[in-house]
Amino acid sequence: MSDVEKIKQIISKELEIDEAEVVDSASLVDDLGADSLSVMELMIAFDDEFGVEVPEEDYDKLLTVGDIVNYITSNK
């Protein structure tokens, strides 16, 4: 499984949504129903899987699935 697929799978699992909904343009909060706590939980899951610790000041930049995919794959 590619990193991109793995990232999308984690988002799907953590937010309890269908993988088909996890498209690059989807907003975590507006489209996928995440709140500040579930975003935090996602970050912990990415750290566990990829060893990427996202600093809190970067959370605001990660609004869509695409933002997360770019951030994780380029900081891995």
Partner: peptide, 10 residues
């Protein structure tokens, strides 16, 4: 501590 769930308290 960074791995403690944000849902722990609630």
């Amino acid at each position: 501590p960074r791995k403690v769930s944000p849902f722990f308290i609630p």
